[in-house]
Nucleic acid binder design. Structure first.
Lengths: 195, 195
DNA sequence: CGATCTCTTGACCCTAGTCAAAATTGGTGG
DNA sequence: CCACCAATTTTGACTAGGGTCAAGAGATCG
């Protein structure tokens, strides 16, 4: 479980390209797929993008917790469902929308998720390379799209840190409907003692 | 739960395009996301692509079944995990691979899933339109890709029914590694009385 | 103060989309 | 059995979005 920093779930394809499936922020379980292990599944890997600290929950402890609170299983199932929901949205994004919209959408999602856990401010702590690998664009094109967004006054002019300064405009460009991200309410009612 | 036929999970985007997220075959739960409902989530829809028959499991019954067999929750959680796995693969597919590979991969997945439930023979009962919407290609391009596959002797010449005749070649073109599809073993050990 | 990583720019090309029209197939009903 | 309609498949011509290659400019760090 991620406590601080940013991590991502990714895989390196045969072509050598890196595909980033999802980003993780503090509070996210970044390893559930390992707990609910499908046999022999080719496993995507988790990797830190910034300095991170993590909490480790032993499988045994999780087993026990689930044993004790049966609703916990449901809550975790929901978390997986949410992840699937995010993936669906990203799939629609990648296959149907043009680059500007696609990148905007990705940024919207990140900001929204950060806000949901209390991190305000429009900073997105990812490199253009990470974003490119997540959006399925070349780094070069990602760069041009970001410049475009700068011209539109949506993100700050500073090229070092990516910061969204006009949230509304971004949502508009992205056609972003945050409903797919709605957090499973049940989960927030559960406290799991990490480690 | 789908008993016969083929259905799909899809959504119509703002642009009017239809994005198909997943296909369902007999034995698939096509409605779990509704049971484990995330509040206010914009819901994708399920729709039959051929004549279908379905089994309905009342939420109450499912609740009870889960109550009685605690491992059932885990099994269903796994089913969702598998769906996420499929979505990840499809995402990688859509954003990184060129059309020929992408289409081949999609076909591989469908055949593999059909075989897993005992439907042999290389027939894929989907229209080019469905495939296009699932692969994120235009119908025109999908058509050209399929012609290409015909020329390569991978699918049958008959344009009405899509049938794969050279499975090995297809797998090769697609760079298909079926591990991500490995069925959660636990699930098959459970019998749920439908209806 | 190199070495390295990230960001930027320009030139060129190719994959896949769009538009538009025709060919094929499958019904449906007279 | 044939005429007609709708859906699917096919074709061709043209376009454009985004990839690739290559080189240069900032940052950052040891």
């Amino acid at each position: 479980m991620l406590l601080a920093g940013v991590a991502c779930l990714y895989e390196t394809l045969e072509s050598g390209e890196r595909q980033i499936y999802d980003f993780y922020y503090p509070g996210d379980f970044c390893d559930l797929h390992r707990y609910v292990k499908l046999e022999a599944v080719a496993e995507p890997a988790v990797r830190a993008l910034t300095d991170c600290s993590i909490g480790i929950i032993e499988y045994r402890d999780l087993d026990q917790a689930i044993e004790r609170h049966r609703k916990l299983a449901l809550a975790l199932w929901r978390a997986t469902m949410l992840e699937a929901s995010i993936l669906r949205e990203r799939l629609a994004n990648a296959s149907q929308r043009p680059a500007l919209e696609r990148v905007s959408h990705l940024l919207c999602e990140q900001l929204h998720r950060r806000q949901a856990i209390g991190i305000d401010g429009g900073v997105v702590p990812l490199t253009q390379i990470d974003l490119a690998d997540a959006a399925g664009l070349s780094v070069v094109h990602m760069n041009r799209v970001l410049q475009n967004l700068r011209k539109l006054g949506v993100i700050s002019a500073n090229s070092r840190t990516l910061e969204v300064v006009n949230w509304e405009r971004l949502v508009e460009i992205a056609n972003f409907d945050s409903r797919y991200l709605t957090m499973p309410a049940a989960l927030s009612n559960w406290e799991i003692r990490a480690e």
